[in-house]
Lab assay of single mutants.
Amino acid sequence: MSIQHFRVALIPFFAAFCLPVFAHPETLVKVKDAEDQLGARVGYIELDLNSGKILESFRPEERFPMMSTFKVLLCGAVLSRVDAGQEQLGRRIHYSQNDLVEYSPVTEKHLTDGMTVRELCSAAITMSDNTAANLLLTTIGGPKELTAFLHNMGDHVTRLDRWEPELNEAIPNDERDTTMPAAMATTLRKLLTGELLTLASRQQLIDWMEADKVAGPLLRSALPAGWFIADKSGAGERGSRGIIAALGPDGKPSRIVVIYTTGSQATMDERNRQIAEIGASLIKHW
């Protein structure tokens, strides 16, 4: 067993022997301040990774656009098919120029040779490549099948209805392509620590998230040296922004954090800054 596999296998073990965790309302004060600064709703939840206990939450059962955070769930569904012998990570998928959609920095470079399922998941999570996500959605049967996968996990809230990039439209009061912070946090925890996926697939999923290259201005910008984070960000229309993450000190994750916002007129930089400040408060009061 590799060191990384050992780390993920012992996530519940280490967490069980940690000192009790206590909620700190100071972080919620910052979440509410972010709402004021952005002029928009902000949803927040913080779960203990081992027990699933909610440590703090704000608007945990209000719907927010998922945006690209759905790509972690998508690759979880792909990995479940791999575990069941219905898919192979090494299978190569070929596609054409007509398949390319807006923001496809990886797939646009491989029109000639195609990409493997493993490479597509890596591109979808680490670079948020939209064509990679659409190609992977095709392998599982489309958005409705991802929703069905989530329902089978016990998540009857999260739903995907459309493809990239239309799913980022974020129309107010439109339930399409949305989740709730509580539902997303619980589902992410199941994917990373539950028995739904094999140990190898859980490790692969967290490795992809740990290698995320496009979430630097968010929670990662607030992390002290030595902290662990595996995350996936999302951005959408109407001032929408979000991030889902597993993080913790001492090089291992111990909490799940989900943050979503929508309806702001603020710039992307300002949305990023507010999420980073929430992260800084979380870490300060850990």
Rank of each mutant, 00 (worst) to 15 (best):
F6K: 13
I125T: 07
R189W: 13
L19Y: 15
P249Y: 05
H94S: 12
A211G: 13
G251V: 07
S96M: 10
F14Q: 03
L219Q: 04
S221T: 13
R176P: 04
R63Q: 09
T107L: 08
W227R: 00
E195Y: 07
G52K: 06
V106K: 07
G242Q: 02
L135K: 05
T158L: 01
I259P: 00
S254Q: 15
L197S: 05
P249F: 05
L137K: 01
D250V: 10
W286Q: 03
Y103G: 06
R176K: 14
G226F: 06
D129Q: 00
I259H: 00
H5M: 15
V257Q: 01
I278D: 00
D212T: 06
D155T: 01
A170G: 13
I283M: 11
A9D: 05
L73F: 08
M67H: 07
S281I: 14
M66A: 07
I278Q: 00
F6T: 06
R118E: 15
T126M: 09
A222N: 14
S233F: 01
D161G: 03
D99R: 08
G251T: 10
S80E: 11
R81F: 10
A222W: 06
V101N: 07
D177C: 03
L49I: 13
K53Q: 12
K144E: 15
E175D: 14
A40D: 05
T112I: 14
R189M: 10
S2T: 13
K190I: 09
D231M: 04
W208Q: 03
A225C: 13
E46D: 07
L10E: 04
V42C: 08
F22T: 06
E145R: 13
T131M: 05
P224N: 06
I140N: 04
L191Y: 07
A225G: 14
P253H: 10
Y260P: 00
N134R: 04
G234P: 00
E46F: 09
P165D: 06
Q274S: 10
A235W: 01
G154N: 08
Y44F: 12
Y260D: 00
N173T: 12
R63V: 08
I229P: 00
W227S: 02
L137S: 06
N173L: 15
L188I: 12
V82S: 09
L205A: 03
F17N: 08
I54G: 04
M268V: 09
G248H: 03
I275K: 00
V72R: 00
I206P: 01
E210C: 12
L247F: 05
E145K: 14
E277I: 12
G141I: 05
V214H: 06
R271P: 05
D207G: 14
R176H: 09
T262E: 10
I3P: 14
D212K: 04
N272Y: 02
I256V: 11
L79V: 06
